[in-house]
Design a protein around this nucleic acid. Sequence first.
DNA 1: TGACAAACGGAACCTTCGTTCCGTATAGTG
DNA 2: CACTATACGGAACGAAGGTTCCGTTTGTCA
Lengths: 208, 208
Amino acid sequence: MDGGRISTDDGVDATPETGGRPMRADAVKNRQRILDAAAEVFASEGVSVPIDAVAARAGVGVGTLYRHFPTKEALFEAIVLTKLIDLADAARAGAGASDPGQAFFAFVQLMAAEATMKRDLFDALDAAGIDFKSRCADGVEALQAGITTLLGRAVAVGAVRDDVDAGEVVALIIGACHAAESIGGNAESVQRLVGVVCGGLRRSAEAL
Amino acid sequence: MDGGRISTDDGVDATPETGGRPMRADAVKNRQRILDAAAEVFASEGVSVPIDAVAARAGVGVGTLYRHFPTKEALFEAIVLTKLIDLADAARAGAGASDPGQAFFAFVQLMAAEATMKRDLFDALDAAGIDFKSRCADGVEALQAGITTLLGRAVAVGAVRDDVDAGEVVALIIGACHAAESIGGNAESVQRLVGVVCGGLRRSAEAL
DNA sequence: TGACAAACGGAACCTTCGTTCCGTATAGTG
DNA sequence: CACTATACGGAACGAAGGTTCCGTTTGTCA
C-alpha cells in the first residue's frame, strides 16, 4: 500500500533497460508488480520472508523476479532506499520551521510511525551498523544529514540536549519501536514509548 | 564466562535424571559442559549460531547434546531462564533500599549491562512478546514482578513518571541496548543511551 | 572381572531458502 | 502473418542448519 516508485528517469540505476533497447511492456509491468508486492510483504512480514512469497504475491515466477533483481538483497535495497529518501525529504522539509524544537520532535514521531508500520524499514535501520549502511549509503547519508540539521537547530534553541548525535537519535527511536513491538505494540503504545525517549532527549540529565 | 548453574536440587525440571535412576557420572559432566559452552556461545554470537558450534565448543557430539536437550530451543531456555531469575533476584534485592529512585535506576543500568554483554538474554527479552514469554514464564514473571516492585516504589517517591509499567520499562531498556549495538556499541555508549531513556522515565513529560 | 544398560559420536536425513537453468510463451517488428 | 529477441515460469540445484539413528564406547554393579 504505497507503490514503490523508483527513480526511473533515464535508467542508470535499477535495471530499467538492458543495454540500450527499451524494456518490453510486460516486463515493465512485472517489474512494478514485483516492487509493489515486495513493499507489502517486506513491510508486513519483515525481511526474512522467503523470496518465493514475494514472487507469489506479485503473481510471477521466481525466475522473473531474479531477472529484474539479481539478488534478494538488491530487491530489498531498491525498496528501502526510496523510503529512506522519503524520510530524508521530510527531514529537509522540517528544517525551515519556525520552531526547531517542535520540528525535531515531530519528525521523530513521523519516523517512528513509519518504521513501526513497515518492518522492512525497521529491520534496515536496525541493521544500519552492520553492512547495510554501505549499500544504501545514499539514503542513509541523506537521512543522517537531514536529521543532523533538525537536531542542530533544536539543540541551538535549547530544546534538546547537546550530547547526542543524529545516529544515536535514529538508534534510540528504532529501539523504542522495537520496544513497542515486543509489547502489544499498537500505534498508540509506539507513540507513548517514543514520547518517553523524547522526554529523555529534552535538555540535560543528571549523569546517574 | 559465567557457568550456567541450574536448580538441580532434586530434579523436577531440566532432565537431571531419566525415570528414577541417578545419572551416570560422565553424563552429568557433559550436561554441565554443554550448558557452559552454550552460555558462552549464545552470549557472544547470539541465538542463531549453529547447534554444531555449541557441541564443538563443549567437546561433545551433537547426538549427546540432543540427548540432554531435545531441542535447540530447550537448551536456549535452560540457559536464559537462570539469567532471568538472577536478574529477578537482583531486583528483589534492591527493593529494600532506602532510596527507591536510585535503586530503580541502578537496577535499570544493571539490566542494560547484562543484556548488552550477553546477546542471548538480549534476544530472549527482545522476543519476549512473541512466544517466548510463555515458555520461560517463570523467569519472565519473576523479573516482571521484581521490576514492578522497584518501579512502584520509585513512582511513589516521585522519582519516576507514573504512566509506564514494568513491561514497558524492560522493553525500553532493551530497545536502548539495541540502539547502542547498532551504533558502535561499546559499554560506554550503552550507558549513555540508557541514560537518555532514564531521563525520559524521570517524572512527567509534556505529551508532545 | 564380566555383563548390560546408559551414554557417546557423528554420519545421514530432511527441510528451508536463495539462486540458476532451460524449455516455452509472447511482444514487437517488417 | 511470421520471425526473433525478450521475457516468463517453475523445476532443479546447492548450501545451511536442525534433528534422528545406530554402531561403538564406557560407567556401574554384582
